[in-house]
Design a binder for these strands. Structure first.
Length: 347
DNA sequence: TAAATTTGACCCAC
DNA sequence: GTGGGTCAAATTTA
């Protein structure tokens, strides 16, 4: 495993994150007091810009380390083929069926279910039908194959593969293939959430429901969608991302996923989808940008975001220390079009 | 009864 | 021949 210090990029990212932390603290202070909305907006804008810069560093390769999946992934025995190896830099094998996959967008995220080994993570808002399961060489757990329920009715060719990690049975690797071309009518209607911008209670309720069972991990760093623990508790958790409060890393690929396609804006049918993630736009979504039209809610929303970011940046620090020694984002494949949709927090 | 899941078989690149 | 991905019949579930 290559240390991030190899090119110093890791340190730069850490510096940027520290900067974000400071800005968030300032913003939190203004929100708690009598700070003007303009000032808050300015700070938010700064946070966004620094965040963008950090992402840019990561994407431009200033920060090495990830992408060396096979060797880096702690889950995997280096002596055995990686079940995730097809997500590496190597081109997708050109099997007839795999050739189809190369023509699609592919995204992988790692998802954990707080429901334990027996309970797969919650749904991602799309309806999936399982069409196969296979034992994968070198993996303890079989891989499940899912396709969009609307494959026949709407010709939606989105598929996903879900597999428990060897190391942690509560962790799932979810690989998405293709994009949803279907309209998730049934799903949206079922939640009474077809108007996410107006039905704020429903949205929040639903999001709360989802958040109770969802953890997204990026190679060992988990962002658990749970209410932020008290500061002292965060300290006790020693910087683990398990202490992370709700936080959003939206990854709009090929055109932003509209709200109705937001993985957390639509209800889940756990039996349909044994693992969660952001549709074919893998996102670590947050309960923040659902009801932007409600000014009162937006204040609370902003407060929540700030608290989340403060806790995040606070807890990230110890983690980044560890990163210096052995940093990896192996479970996460950065998409070229990956962006952090932090602007949605503040709009 | 329709829809979803299970599971063995099949296909095909390597 | 092997392994990953898919198909489709059988079975289960709501």
């Amino acid at each position: 495993m290559e240390s991030m210090e190899g090119n110093g990029g890791g340190r730069l990212v850490v510096t940027e994150l520290s900067h974000i932390k400071e800005l968030v603290k300032q913003l939190e202070g203004h929100l708690g007091g009598s700070g003007s909305p303009d000032l808050c907006k300015h700070l938010a804008s700064q946070i966004f810009s620094v965040t963008e810069r950090s992402i840019g560093m990561i994407r431009s390769g200033h920060f090495d380390g990830p992408r060396k999946r096979a060797a880096a992934t702690g889950d995997l025995d280096p002596a055995t083929p990686s079940p995730l190896s097809d997500v590496s830099d190597l081109p997708f094998k050109a099997t007839k069926k795999r050739k189809m996959s190369t023509e699609k967008k592919r995204h992988q995220i790692r998802v954990s279910s707080t429901g334990g080994v027996e309970n797969p993570p919650v749904d991602d808002g799309h309806s999936w039908r399982k069409y196969g399961q296979k034992e994968i060489l070198g993996s303890k757990h079989p891989r499940g194959y899912y396709r969009c329920t609307h494959r026949n009715s709407q010709g939606c060719m989105a598929t996903k593969q879900v597999q428990r990690t060897d190391q942690d049975a509560t962790l799932f690797d979810v690989i998405y293939h293709g994009e949803h071309t279907c309209v998730q009518k049934a799903v949206a209607a079922g939640a009474g959430n077809t108007q996410p911008e107006t039905d704020t209670n429903a949205a929040q309720s639903h999001l709360h429901h989802l958040s109770s069972g969802l953890t997204v991990k990026v190679e060992g760093l988990t962002a658990t969608e749970q209410p932020p623990p008290p500061p002292q508790q965060q300290q006790q958790q020693g910087g683990s991302w398990n202490a992370m409060p709700p936080f959003c890393l939206s990854s709009p690929v090929s055109g932003l996923a509209p709200p109705e396609h937001n993985p957390f804006s639509a209800p889940s049918t756990p039996e349909n989808s044994p693992a969660t993630s952001g549709s074919n736009h893998p996102s670590v979504a947050a309960p923040f940008h659902q009801v932007a039209g409600d000014a009162a809610w937006r204040d609370a929303e902003l407060q929540e975001v700030v608290s989340a970011l403060v806790a995040a940046t606070t807890t990230v620090q110890p983690a980044t220390a560890a990163m210096d020694a052995d940093f990896s984002l192996d479970g996460f494949e950065f998409d070229p079009a990956f962006t952090i949709d932090i602007t949605s927090f503040f709009t």
